[in-house]
Design a protein around this nucleic acid. Structure first.
Lengths: 190, 190
DNA sequence: TTGAATATGTCGCTTATACAACACATCGAA
DNA sequence: TTCGATGTGTTGTATAAGCGACATATTCAA
């Protein structure tokens, strides 16, 4: 929740690097972006890059995670509950994220991107599934989170490929009756 | 001409501080801006401010100098010569600068601002008056530069107060015939 | 295939920035 | 006046960032 405050120098430099990477992504293919490029664009020393990231794949991973998280956090789910609303807004966030990616030529890294999306979704679904402040791990909920994250991601891929005629909201709402048992919908007794 | 490259950290931090100060100037009076404010806005430590500037007056001075220099360098005078063109564009730069200041409430520091403008102008006029690459100091030219800088500044103040009906170009061109001996106008033999 | 050019990681040392603490000044309200 | 709150400069120490150098890839053209 509240980390012990990260050094502002680290915040600044990480932002500089990430922004420069996204900027370069608009110009070049991912494969053509070098760490030397990024350091030059960010006006930082190349060695400093390695202080923050393992390598360029680590950077890609963290940039994507962050962009995705920004999308997801826009909708602040109430009371950590997995409602129809929460599912819909998560699905919209995923499709938005994927649409924004398709503009930024990351061709050839679909599987990396897919893995990152699923990992982030898994974390979020696990939180939504867990009872309040329940910090002990529950293997059943973890597996359920995996199923939901993979399922949502697969659905988003399908929507991207085939179903541009209907909105993501309409698309996912077609599935919700089958996904959530009827008596769970609408936060039953609380 | 080409300094041995200043540390990029210094460039970044100085820019952060200066930009934050200008940003705050749009919101508050100069008197109400504290160093604590600036540090917070720039997301730097307050102690770091003192690594770059003596105090808030030093900052004001350097910010104004820089803004003024940007205005002045827009018109890149040919061959370091004090022509009618050069005088006109310098005068326009001064009035532009003063107009931009009047939007940014610096009331109560007119004399400080006036001194800074005159100092910068003196440097520029001295360069324009000096023969090419002539690095030895000439007291006569220095005094002439003082006269020109004070004179131009005074003229700009007068224009600000009274003569908004005519453009700065028209204003200063009225004086040029009297200012420059006729045979000097128009870069005589070159 | 070779060789030159460029990119990647890493290291040691220097410098800039963060942070907490301090003494002092200023200011406004009790 | 006195006190509390806030701002100013300064200092000592920890850490992030800069910089040059190095060994090792990778690329690409001869």
């Amino acid at each position: 929740m509240n980390q012990p405050k990260t050094d502002p120098r680290i915040q600044r430099t990480r932002k500089l690097i990430m922004d420069s990477f996204m900027e370069l992504s608009n110009i070049k293919e991912f494969k053509e972006i070098t760490i030397t490029d990024i350091a030059a664009e960010a006006m930082i020393n190349r060695a400093t890059f390695y202080y923050h990231f393992e390598d360029i794949y680590d950077l890609l991973e963290k940039v994507l995670s962050e962009v995705l998280l920004v999308n997801l956090n826009c909708s602040n789910y109430p009371h950590n509950e997995l409602t129809e609303e929460a599912i819909t807004s998560i699905f919209v966030a995923i499709t938005n994220f994927q649409k924004s990616l398709s503009n930024r030529c990351h061709r050839g890294y679909e599987d990396t991107i897919a893995r990152i999306i699923r990992e982030q979704l898994e974390i979020i679904f696990y939180q939504l599934l867990s009872p309040q402040q329940h910090s002990e791990k529950d293997e059943g909920l973890r597996i359920m989170a995996i199923i939901l994250s993979s399922g949502m991601y697969g659905a988003s891929v399908d929507w991207m490929r085939n179903s541009h005629k209907i909105t993501p909201e309409e698309f996912i709402e077609l599935a919700i009756p089958h996904l959530l048992p009827a008596h769970h919908i609408g936060s039953p007794d609380n």
